[in-house]
Nucleic acid binder design. Sequence first.
DNA 1: TCTGGGGTCCTAGGACCC
DNA 2: TCTGGGGTCCTAGGACCC
Length: 410
Amino acid sequence: MRSRTVMHIDMNSFFASVEQAANPFLKGKPIVVTGSQQRTVILTASYEARAFGVKTGMMLHEAKRLCPEVILVPADNRKYTHTSSQIMKMFHDYTPLVEVFSIDEAWLDVTGSLALFGGAENIAYKIKSRIKYHFDITCSIGIAPNKLLAKLASEMKKPDGLVVIKADEVSRVLEQMPIKELCGIGRKTERALQMMSIRTCGELGRCDEKRLTNRFGIVGTQLKQMGQGIDDSPVISAEDADEVKSVGHSMTLKRDITFRNEILRYLLQLSEMVGRRARRYEVAGKTIHLTIRYSDFSTFGKQTTLKNYVNKSEDIYVGAVAILDTIDIEQPIRLLGVRITNLCYHREQLPLFEDERKKAFMVSAMDAVNDKYGDFTVTYGSLLGNNSQSGSHVISPAWKPEGIRNVQVT
DNA sequence: TCTGGGGTCCTAGGACCC
DNA sequence: TCTGGGGTCCTAGGACCC
């Protein structure tokens, strides 16, 4: 593969930075952005809060213990999605090859624009200053010959970093780098590799491939390459990205529940959320997956495959309930999730029968109102009185603007 | 440290068909 | 009736990312 110049851009503590930019009172203060529900964790901590040891994923009381003056800010999805979309759009000024990895991260293949903008570092400086100027947010940028190394580089200096790894520096940089710094090596893989006395990327890259494939299968080959800093995967823009493969929602309930009525109500709500998003994407799914987490945190899923593709909330709900009916509920339920997979992208055929047509019309009318005025403005009767759907839903940092395939570029 | 939510990819085993 | 093999679809679960 020809030599490339890839850039990875990572917005620093994105949600917290957006909040601090929007509210001068929060600037320079330790703040954490949390979900809207009671059983929530910290989604992002500002750097002022991180100085106290406060981290993403931590529980609120833990954060307050570490930093009593910490300010809690409930997440405001619209603000983050709006800012993210604008920033991602700006990246297209420098190359059409922009791969949105999450709401606050993207890769840019700038190989073809180097001459036009006077080199990768110049592009990085321009991007940094524009993000700072327009949004008052800092970012860390890594520049390297591939995505793996560019991401590694952007992690190396935070906040407001710019790290370049040149092709002839790769082995020097990786020699002492702990393996868990590589994107793709998580806790379990790190432990498994440590059992084989492999702790650094240097050691991983030199390891006998056979040893790795014996332990990890085909992933072993990939691990060795990662240790050597090899990664041929292209930067894939939204237009070229694969279509979405599943659509799902899950929620930790306000309190653990046991009664079937309550379970059904949540399932209807989740089915409506899934159905609405599926219809917006113009996909339908043949397989319905139900996830249950008990109060002891044990989690399992069960799925069923239908004869037809569905995306009406009602059909998804019926499928989810059918699965529920095959399960012996053993404990109070802490979390419920509904997901459709096995998707097809064909637009739904116009229903043949009059009542089907009416139903389809009603579904799209409800969608239109909800799109305009917000989720659950109109909804099924049994959801009324269930105040669980009130607040804005927790948005995860992995969220992508309107789904991968719907990112607007122009 | 009683621990969120949305995804993708991979593996392994079973059913079924030719 | 016995045997083997390949392909495909389905289910369940795990690891990983943000």
